[in-house]
Amino acid sequence: MQRVIDKVKELLANGVADRVLAWKVGEFPYDRIPGVFKDDLDGLCYDSFSACNLSKYLINETKKDGRVLVLMKPCDSYGVNLLIKEHRIDREKIYILAVPCNCKVDIEKIKDSGIKGIIDIAEEGDVLKINTVYGQKELDRRQVLCDKCLSCQGKKHVIYDEIIEDDEQQNIEKTDRMEAVEELEAMSPEERFAFWRSELSKCIRCNACRNVCPACSCNKCIFDNTDTGVAAKSNADSFEENMFHIIRAFHVAGRCTDCGECSRVCPQNIPLHLLNRKFIKEINELYGEFQAGEDAVTTGPLTFFTMEDAEPDVVYKKGRD
């Protein structure tokens, strides 16, 4: 995306910031690693594989001197608002360049389609031309988009200083993000329990979901704190497998921006976003529509109290349904 690189150069030359947080090319044609560039923009890349959410990196970046220019996808911009609201980053120290997004491609899905030994990937419209050691392959990019993109909340950036407008046509079919949650709700409690057990029993407690999450920004997570008595590096039994995720889901309730990173990074393909979306759905129903990170000021529904709030007995009533 030459447009993006040119804009970054221009902004740096104008002195809006002294460095830029963006994506860097890596070993493979699909590796896009979060990275900071100063004068040399070599390797800076924004394309179909720039899926990582950069917002959380701003916590460390804004601890440094100077100002950082950051490239933001629409979904990542919610994380920025959340982090500003929670006083985790200093708005003054960032300059946000909003970049358009036409959905990201999931390399795992490419590989799951049976394509191995990838040497090079070229994009022509919706066609991915993939050169492999086993020959030339082609795929329709729409078949291998990241799950998070299939149900993304739109192409609007909720915070930015400058924007590069979208000039591409969107032709991606979206699914309703609550569809899968509703499927789970339709199950019997036993079925639902079995579903979550089969998923969570795969968890290896690598903490990737937690560490990538812009809402998980505690300086020391309770699960890492040896003084709490609940610190754990592995799941010894099913109770611990469930507990880690239940606690995490509760802790990010009302704060999860639904950026989809947790599920994207899970090495075991656990659909963690379904837990968080269930919370989002419940919150919307009980307190009215709320989107975490929509802005950096509105108090979240779970962090203040009104007389109209749902009574705790909704839990019992729900449980009986």
Partner: peptide, 15 residues
Amino acid sequence: ELYEACLGCGTCTFV
């Protein structure tokens, strides 16, 4: 520069 993006998760060690 190499470590910069590392999230400090345990994925690489556990797999």
